[in-house]
Design a protein around this nucleic acid. Sequence first.
DNA 1: ACTTAACGGGAATAA
DNA 2: CCCGTTAAGT
Length: 731
Amino acid sequence: MVSMADNTHPLLHGLNDQQRAAVTTSVGPALVLAGPGSGKTRVLTHRIAWMLAEMHVSPWQILAVTFTNKAAREMNHRLGTMLGDASARAMMLGTFHAACARILRREAMRLGLSPDFLIFDTDDQLTVMKQVVADMGLDDKRYRPHALLNAISSAKNELILPADYPVRTYFDEIVARAYAQYQQTLRKNDGLDFDDLLMEAARMFQTDPEAVHQYRDRFQHILVDEFQDTNIAQYVILKQLAADHRSLYVVADEDQSIYSWRGADYRNILRLRQDFPELVEFLLEENYRSTQVILDGAQAIIAQNADRTPKHLFTEKKGGQPLTLHEAYDEQEEADFVAKETLRLLRSGHTHGDIAVMYRTNAQSRALEESFIRHNIPYRLIGATRFYSRKEIKDVLGFVRLAHNPDDDVSFMRVVNVPPRGIGSRTLTNVATEAQRLGSSLYRALLSLLECKSSAGRAERALSAFATMVAQWIALRQEVSVAGLIDRVLADTDYEMFIRDGSDQGESRWENVLALRAVVAEEPDVSLTDFLTDVALVADVDELSEEVDAVTLLTLHSAKGLEYPVVFLTGLEEGLLPHSRSMESPVEVAEERRLLYVGMTRAEQRLYLTYAFRRSWRGFRDSEPSLPSRFLEDLPDSVLKQPRNQRRQATKSSWATPSWRAPSRKTEAPTRPELQYRTGQRVMHAFYGEGMVLESELEGRQEMVTVLFGNGIGVKKLLSSMAPMELLPQH
DNA sequence: ACTTAACGGGAATAA
DNA sequence: CCCGTTAAGT
């Protein structure tokens, strides 16, 4: 069948031997173990093209799952140019969540769901959980909604239902009850959370023979990218769907598994081998992305992890610029270093778009942003405050969601008094009581209250106006486009007046609303349901467009799958990477190491590694200096621009400290620093010159010194840690 | 009912 | 530092 499996076939042109073997393998379960930059997306794309062209597979028989919508779009685009748009469009290509959402909508009746169910995002989940905690009379300090949601999420990822939740402790008991209550509330609101999308789909395929047969026939060929980051629910879906035709083609790299905290289980690779014994495996080891030096550095880091298959990544890009390791004084200087290097790179022919700056936590972006602004460098930020979770956007979407489904109590509560229209907590309690009595949604309770009450007090009038407005939107929703509906909502609520309060912030919020309006206007035919689904399932990186020429700021997690000519990895310190919350568990530390590996392997030509000696925490400078990340110790000097021992002579001791004993921020004993300065002490400041200490006191763990300087400078308050001053002899 | 100020408590990663 | 919550004032 594959007689043309040589490099003369146009579809195989430019593939290496390993890739070609992977692309042309016969139908059946296949696992492609692909190192970073080894062209796995390419293999996946060519594999699909190959199946369509040479194996008599029809596009509608294909389900291809990617990790982000962006990856799906790219693959779609590539296939479009290879084969023509029509065949690319007939496939089901997208993320697990998007694919499940589509399937669940189609099968909603079967599952007792409304076909127009809403997808509840993190905010919505929290709202619901807070309500549940309150209803159960729990102390939200002791049972934090976040913690409960986490536990529930883990359970869902493992397909554990409330009734089956294992109870070993009292806390578990509470989780089980909260879980049940939470699910009930979601269903009452016609909502599914992200985890539900996967769990419901998996359960349907497990328990409904008719459904599973139907979809096995539909999706005869399944391909999965980033398989190492699938969770149990996702695995069950794949296993169920592929059970008959056994055409399951997955691409994975265990070294890039960085999502175990949201249920991803790299052991799915082992399960795959067990459940599909006829599995054929391929290894892609040639790297087309990075220079040899970068690859060597990355390999040195990842090689320290136990329980992994050793790989021999190689590249033809021999040599390359060695890595720059930079120690900054604090996060500000670190950011300035990045900015200055960026300017230098720009002068040497790089564009802004070539450069990415990565960090472990979103909070770290602030210092970088400030520095980029100071240096006038355009940047864009991935993540931080997602577009769709901004207040103004959520408000507008809240109105729209209410028009879409008035029984959505979460949206109802969000917008019932936005902009303020005189509906306070008192009034809402009445509505809530009525809803409870009727066992209905808030909106229906409101309608019923309005019917009964003939008296028109202030509150009733406001409520009535609101109800009328919503009713009109519901009617309108059938007739106009989503954009039309949004226009009407904005007009009816006077939202512009409300949001544009004259402040800059108000202006920018209104711009966001207009941006939302513009996004909607681009697709005039999209249905309200599809629009709301898309909105719920966009990922941060999905918004990345190549057109903007700006430096990209993003977390290491969102960097997965991306590549840049120049990469800065910042904040490589103990407590940050590895993160302090992961340091007690070797398994989690190993994942932190993989995170670093992922970051390093994003770089094509130049890689900078930076850490700060002192880093602020919650606005205040840490009293203890940071230690460089333990992972850096595994970098051989040979890949560094400046050998370490030369650079680090003065503070060599910090490297010699066994890193596993390094105190974390959280656990370190509160040291009680002695006051360095005393009233009357004469001092010499590097900048202000000679002065006399008026007062010195502890503020938190900081020593705050008040000094009177001469030369007309006057009194200054200084942190001793920030402004070390020389003590002068008394006279 | 709404606005504002003061307070306390708390940070990881995301569809 | 930023958030949400609460108290007091308009």
